[in-house]
Design a protein around this nucleic acid. Structure first.
Length: 219
DNA sequence: GCGACAG
DNA sequence: ATCTTGTCGC
């Protein structure tokens, strides 16, 4: 694994951020894709999986996976450079392309507004939403207990995402714009695909799929 | 210098 | 991220 020049990568992220479309620029959504990467700290490979679900049944119609040697280690704030290449590979192997991507990780909730969901969305120029399980940056007011409560996440005076109580007494999830979608529309799609779970179906299924890809690689 | 820190 | 058993609750 090559040791990356972070100042160069920071510039790349600023470029990707500048090209991010923060408004709705998507057509009718009939297929939703879930993206996740599986990796172990004791291995050098990363395993990407994309599952394609039909809306509104949320039944799986396609999936693709890709295993690659990681180009760099995990460094907070630079996740895209580690995970996006394998995800792009899986994308090109899909027999049908989804109209919208839900990525496990941040979108604009990132110091330079370039989380993995934005990185992947802009790279492919496909509508994308970031669904993260914990915080990267920003602050928010107290989140009410009731399911479906949501509060804005602010970083340096800018709303970068929403904290959503997707399930009762569960740790809330972070929703942010990835690319070509508004925050409101992103929230609509996440809520519509939750089905009583903490994580939306696309992301949840992608996590399982990525685990399968890793097991297959190790076998 | 100190604290924070997606996956 | 992954490593793991039991345990609590609907």
């Amino acid at each position: 694994m090559t040791l990356p020049d972070l100042s160069v990568l920071r510039e790349e992220q600023r470029d990707l951020a500048a090209r991010t479309v923060r408004e709705d620029a998507l057509g009718e959504v009939r297929l939703i894709g879930g993206v996740d990467i599986s990796a172990s700290r004791f291995e050098q490979e990363v395993h990407a999986a994309i599952v394609v679900l039909e809306w509104p049944s949320l039944t799986e119609v396609a999936r693709a996976g890709a295993s690659q040697v990681a180009r760099m280690p995990y460094i907070t704030g630079f996740l895209g450079f580690r995970e996006v290449p394998a995800a792009v590979s899986a994308w090109h192997d899909l027999p049908v392309k989804p109209d919208l991507l839900m990525v496990d990780g941040q979108g604009l909730e990132h110091p330079r507004r370039c989380g993995v969901a934005t990185h992947l969305g802009v790279t492919l120029d496909v509508p994308a939403i970031g669904v993260a399980k914990s915080r990267l940056c920003g602050t928010w007011p107290e989140l009410p207990e009731p399911v479906d409560s949501a509060v804005p996440i602010t970083d340096r005076g800018e709303v970068v995402g929403m904290l959503l109580r997707s399930r009762l007494r569960a740790k809330p999830i972070h929703i942010s714009i990835g690319h070509r979608i508004s925050l409101d529309t992103a929230m609509r799609w996440v809520r519509a695909t939750l089905r009583g779970r903490r994580l939306p179906e696309p992301t949840r299924r992608a996590h399982d799929a990525a685990s399968v890809v890793r097991k297959a690689f190790l076998a």
